[in-house]
Write a protein that binds this DNA or RNA. Structure first.
Length: 482
RNA sequence: GGCGUGGUAGCCAAGUGGUAAGGCCGAGCUCUGCAAAAGCUCUAUCGCGGGUUCGAUUCCCGCCCACGCCUCCA
């Protein structure tokens, strides 16, 4: 098993991953809120987590991946109300869309994908435990808050002591009933009492009807499914505070022994679009569909979203998609070359890698690429090393043994990076040319055979002006759309 | 105000105390009658000013610039 390191937000250091138990890594990712199609910014994070998981697998670990679905919150309720539909109907629709998008991106599915609404009882149980230990208090309207001052560790992730309250308190709206009953502005809500605009979205609880607060679901579900494997917890950088800070507070206080709630906290930076923040008003709020409509494949988008450091803000541009597309063609070609030199089939090889069959095989000339990738997921560096190897390797001159080693090592990297190379089109799709064009092309060919270059060029120009191009080969020609 | 990140070639982007990977684009060459494809080659002294050092883009200090979080947000 080779070493994999990640930057841990908790310690601000790059650390080798050492699972709590054996070689099973528990990995919890904060998933989507299913009220609309996820945008490319969401996917930048989910894709980074996918590469994280794949890299761990290639390194020889087993990964138990849990990613929740937030299917009750202000936004989902609002959406359901606007559409006059049941909450569940809305969230189930967007969940299906999310899954379809994930598949297009060639993302591995989490083994467990729990929904907030399926774990109301677990969340209530946590609140009960926290109330008993005086880490929480109920207010008169039937809401329950976490008492931040009761937890010394509060702020250890985000490095904020208690929140800077002087400014925020002044800004806080006194009319917001969620706010004014709190003992301290720093306290956060775990149970929200039922409000008028919640419609029929509420559950019974010891404090009356209401619904869980946002931070609680992740705590409850992570503890339920990964209680013994609290290794990696990951999400977007915006979640460091307050979401993850609050998760830690609730979770650690709810355990009798204050068990550490996850060892490794990994956060992905956001992305900019064409230099600016993504926003609906700027019309740069893209989904996978939008990018595909512009003629790019999901794998090109995947490449563009993951080819630089995950902890670094990236600027997503159409240029980066073009670059991705070209780079992928080279990766695909080399994949084809190594496979044919080794006499292996891509699908079968990737499947074997997925099952961990080649985890001990040697990296050969790609050792540097792997070492770079497994060092805090330096994808850009790994790609650099891969392209260098591609440039330096003549697959036709390899021995059968070396070809096999190379093909396996190369595809382990392809697997870790998660590129679905079958989506990469090397040859333009053939389009049947109309008779008129075919005739012109034939005339050009005849002129060429007669070595009447001037005439041949005339025909070529005419074809070009009509939007077609001719590709000559030794003993024939092909017609393609320009 | 508090916490944090970054400034490397036309664009994107790794990395290192000893004069800088890679990708895209562009240019040139080879090959083709031409073209396409392919292959080869070429393009930076690392924001600015100091300091430490035999030597810094890489360490330290100051400055400038850009950006993020502190409120729902991947």
């Amino acid at each position: 098993m080779s070493e994999v390191t990640f930057h841990n937000t908790l310690t601000r250091q790059r650390e080798p991953i050492e699972p709590t138990k054996g070689k099973l890594v528990g990995m919890y990712c904060c998933g989507p809120t299913v009220y609309a199609q996820a945008h490319i910014g969401n996917f930048r994070t989910f894709l980074s987590q996918d590469v994280m998981r794949r890299t761990l697998q290639v390194a020889g670990y087993k990964v138990l991946h849990v990613r929740n679905l937030t299917d009750v919150d202000d936004k989902t309720i609002k959406r359901a109300f606007e559409e006059g539909k049941a909450l569940r109907e809305v969230t189930e629709h967007w969940t299906r869309v999310f899954h379809a998008d994930c598949e297009r991106f060639n993302m591995l599915s989490p083994q467990i994908e729990p929904k907030a609404t399926d774990h109301i009882q677990e969340q209530i149980n946590m609140i009960v435990a926290l109330l008993e230990k005086d880490h929480a208090y109920a207010t008169e309207d039937g809401s329950v808050y976490f008492r931040v001052s009761s937890f010394d560790g509060y702020g250890k992730l985000s490095r904020l002591k208690e929140r800077e309250l002087t400014t925020t308190a002044a800004d806080a709206s006194p009319n917001d009933s969620d706010e004014y009953e709190r003992d301290s502005m720093a306290d956060f809500v775990m149970w929200k009492s039922r409000k008028e605009n919640d419609g029929d979205v509420f559950w019974d609880s010891p404090w009356g009807e209401g619904r869980p607060g946002w931070h609680l679901e992740c705590s409850a579900m992570a503890m339920k499914y990964l209680g013994n494997n609290l290794d990696i917890h990951s999400g977007g950088e915006d979640l460091v505070f307050p979401h993850h800070e609050n998760e830690i507070a609730q979770s650690e206080c709810s355990c009798s022994d204050h068990t550490q709630f996850f060892k490794y906290w990994i956060h992905c930076a956001h992305l900019l679009v064409e230099g600016g923040k993504m926003s609906k008003s700027l019309n740069n709020f893209y989904s996978v569909d939008d990018i595909e409509a512009k003629g790019f494949t999901p794998v090109a988008l995947r490449y563009a979203l993951t080819s630089s450091a995950y902890r670094q803000t990236i600027n997503f541009t159409m240029d980066s998609l073009h670059a991705a597309q070209s780079a992928l063609v080279r990766l695909k070609k080399f994949s084809d070359e190594t496979l044919s030199a080794a006499g292996l089939k891509r699908a079968a090889l990737l499947k074997a890698i997925d099952k961990g069959k080649h985890s001990k095989d040697s990296w050969g000339p790609l050792a540097k690429a792997w070492q770079t990738l497994s060092n805090d997921l330096n994808i850009a560096g790994a790609l650099g090393a891969i392209f260098t190897t591609i440039k330096e390797t003549k697959t036709t001159e390899l021995s059968a043994e070396a070809a096999q080693e190379l093909a396996i090592a190369y595809h382990k990297l392809v697997y870790a990076l998660g590129y679905d190379l079958t989506q990469v089109v090397i040859e333009k799709p053939k389009v049947e040319a109309p008779e008129e064009i075919k005739a012109l092309a034939q005339q050009r060919w005849d002129a060429k055979q007669a070595k009447d270059w001037a005439k041949a060029d005339e025909f070529r120009n005419e074809l070009t002006s009509k939007g077609w191009k001719i590709l000559d080969s030794k003993d024939g020609f092909e017609i393609e759309l320009l």
